[in-house]
Design a protein around this nucleic acid. Structure first.
Lengths: 195, 195
DNA sequence: AAGCAGTATATCATGATGATATAGAATATG
DNA sequence: CATATTCTATATCATCATGATATACTGCTT
């Protein structure tokens, strides 16, 4: 199978709900999607041009609400069709890249304090992420039954919560192992990840 | 900060242990590193050429053991230095992209059976991954104290185990939520992920 | 002898990243 | 009211990454 431009479908999916400018699209992605798929301007604007050329979206001048003039994009029936086809496909790519694991993998090049500090950094960062996503989760739970879309969003938030908790659990175990302490094996007092 | 070519350091890190050909490097990465950072030939060969040009590695004809003639690469002192500098840096990039979450996010476009099947696919895939990594883990535990490098490798394997278990836990919860069943909240009989 | 697995290097089009350039509008500060 | 800062908005670029394909030789099987 050829390499696929996922940005196309993210944009179509967002435009399926409402008309947006490139800038709006970026903001929406940052808030709701960036947790599991990041997209930058360098991908958004060229893709929008491509979508216009293929008549999957149409571009029109935005009646400037505030700030400079916008280019507003709307999805076409053709675009809606392509979007739906994509969502129907079972294929689901997955990319994960963790520089921390690379550096740990080559960890014998540096003192263990470096590796421990690295793990500590990682943990602190993801404690923040977990708190943030749990706030999202709390807000969503209140409106979970008002709209089916909220449930789908909730599922992605739940995913983040599980994964961040796994990160924290791993960090604790890894620190204990590196510090040479025993007693991680019984694993009975493992943190439950609640913040 | 400018964009950094991580492949450079993966190659340097592997060559720091032993001389390898481009093909060997690819195999090593696939076995030991691809779980947290994948690299293809399209990245390896151009990077090797760049490393030679910068005198971080040297290329020499391999005395063909089997198959066609090899180009064998060795790290230089300059390369070793650069590698160590990189490992020392606290910076640790992280990319995660999950197409399944994108498709779930736009899940209202398709019937729920589609979404449930998608989650089931995801779960099956990662049950396989978990089994594989737990086999690795078992093998490593037997030699954990024979070499410090084994411990660092073990940490990366442990990470995978935690994350795959989190995936499976999430999949169960997500399926229950989509199927409309209550009773996921108490969360007392949550699978512990053992396979 | 033919076919197939594996070994080995290399390249290409497309996609993604991360930074930067440009510039007008809104808001705050003195 | 002038100035600075932030926000809005579009766009582009070099570099890196992806995934597929091309080429060709070796060793094994049937």
């Amino acid at each position: 199978m050829p390499k696929e431009n996922t940005t196309v479908y993210i944009i179509l999916g967002l435009l399926n709900h409402e008309d947006l400018s490139g800038y709006d699209i970026k903001k929406k992605i940052d808030v709701m999607i960036s947790g599991f798929w990041e997209v930058g301007y360098g991908q958004i604007y060229p893709t929008l041009a491509k979508l216009v050329a293929e008549e999957l979206v149409v571009k029109h001048k935005g009646t400037g609400s505030k700030g400079p003039e916008k280019n507003i994009y709307s999805i076409t029936d053709k675009g809606r069709e392509l979007l739906k086809e994509w969502v129907m496909l079972p294929e689901q790519k997955e990319y994960t890249k963790y520089e921390i694991l690379l550096k740990l993998f080559f960890g014998s090049l540096v003192p263990d304090e470096s590796n421990l500090a690295r793990i500590e950094d990682f943990k602190e960062r993801h404690i923040q992420n977990l708190q943030l996503i749990q706030m999202f989760k709390g807000n969503l739970e209140r409106v979970l039954h008002t709209d089916k879309d909220h449930l789908y969003f909730y599922l992605t938030v739940l995913f983040g919560e599980h994964v961040y908790k796994a990160y924290l659990d791993w960090a604790d175990e890894a620190k204990a192992l590196l510090a040479g302490k025993p007693g991680t094996e019984p694993n009975m007092e493992r943190s439950n990840g609640d913040v």
